[in-house]
């Protein structure tokens, strides 16, 4: 891997493709029903037990205004770690790990102020780079 390239996880939310840097992902797990916690924002769908640790399950489709489909056999939890917070992100489908040339990433309009910090051309179509900092910021605004 050259200094100008990095690994990303390519996944799908509804019909849209997204990527996250592999450094932010600790694992991929099959979806299982999270335990809902009353009085939380709709995007926080509950908590799961991940090998003895409680992890917040987050449905980013809610934040993006996407249609939320019922889980299928392809639904996964992307176990992410960002700014000291462990998250289980619902993904409708996790495709692959992609090596990407960092120079090929196009910065999203708005300078990354929304949930996407860039656009890349993946083998399966145009994908947005999910900005977890913005996701956590949006949740902070929600409560």
């Amino acid at each position: 891997m050259s200094a100008s390239s990095a690994q990303f996880i390519l996944f799908q939310l509804s019909t849209e493709w997204f990527v996250l840097p592999v450094e932010q992902i600790r694992g991929i797990e099959r979806w299982r029903p999270p335990t809902p916690v009353p009085s939380t924002p709709p995007a926080i769908i509950g908590i799961i037990n991940q090998r003895g640790a409680l992890v917040t399950a987050l449905d980013i489709r809610v934040l993006l205004g996407f249609k939320v489909e019922a889980p299928t056999r392809r639904t996964r939890f992307l176990l992410a770690h960002f700014n000291g917070v462990d998250l289980a992100l619902v993904a409708d489908y996790v495709a692959d790990m992609l090596p990407l040339n960092l120079a090929s990433i196009k910065i999203a309009p708005g300078g990354g102020s929304n949930l996407s910090s860039g656009l890349i051309q993946s083998p399966l179509g145009l994908a947005s780079m999910l900005n977890l900092e913005a996701v956590l910021g949006m949740l902070a605004v929600a409560y």
Binding site: S39, I47, G84, A140
Partner: peptide, 22 residues
């Protein structure tokens, strides 16, 4: 009783929720 994970804990003002057990 385990504390709620950070993001959940921060979003709850309801004192009814006191934690989690497995």
């Amino acid at each position: 009783v385990l504390p709620l994970p950070p993001l959940v804990h921060d979003s709850i003002l309801d004192p009814t929720i006191s934690g989690v057990i497995l």
